[in-house]
Amino acid sequence: MSLKIRLARGGSKKRPYYQIVIADARSPRDGRFLEKVGSWNPMLAKDNDKRVELNADRIKEWLVKGAQPTDRVEKFLADAGIVTREARSNPEKAKPGKKAMERVAERKQKAEDAAAAAAEAAAE
């Protein structure tokens, strides 16, 4: 049985609230779980202490037993100092898309045309 430390969604529509749970990897996201070990409220400010709450002792015990955290939970655990997470680098993610590049080029062309027209009008 492979165990995951993952998020189970709660809360109402457009007001998410997540429980951090230990669950069998085959069980549904909001379905059966073994133990609740924390919570995450994304509606709170990032500097609020109540945004992410973790039961570090229980999480460490489950990690020793072989539970694997999901990417988002691993980020929370790394911020809390429970696990180490290598930094990821995706330089392609920051680059604008094709359409955005076309819009930038179009704006630049319009600005050049307007400057040329203004210079031509000033020369007359």
Rank of each mutant, 00 (worst) to 15 (best):
L77A: 05
G38F: 07
A80K: 06
N48R: 04
K93H: 04
V37I: 15
K65Q: 09
L54Y: 00
E92V: 00
R51T: 02
R51N: 04
A45P: 06
V64G: 09
N41M: 06
E74Q: 13
F76L: 01
T84N: 06
A87G: 08
R88S: 10
V73T: 12
V83F: 03
L44K: 01
E61F: 06
D79G: 13
K75H: 14
E92F: 06
V73S: 15
D49S: 14
N90W: 09
N41S: 12
D79A: 14
S39F: 02
V37D: 00
K60E: 15
V73M: 07
N48S: 15
G81R: 10
D57S: 15
W40C: 07
I59D: 13
F76K: 00
N41E: 09
A45K: 12
S89R: 14
A94C: 09
S39T: 12
V52Q: 06
R85W: 03
L77C: 06
K60T: 05
D79P: 02
V52P: 00
M43R: 14
A45M: 03
K46F: 11
W40G: 03
S39M: 00
R88K: 13
G66K: 07
L54E: 02
D79R: 15
R58F: 01
G66Y: 01
A56T: 09
N55Q: 13
L54T: 09
L44N: 15
K65W: 00
N55K: 08
K60A: 09
R85H: 08
V37Q: 01
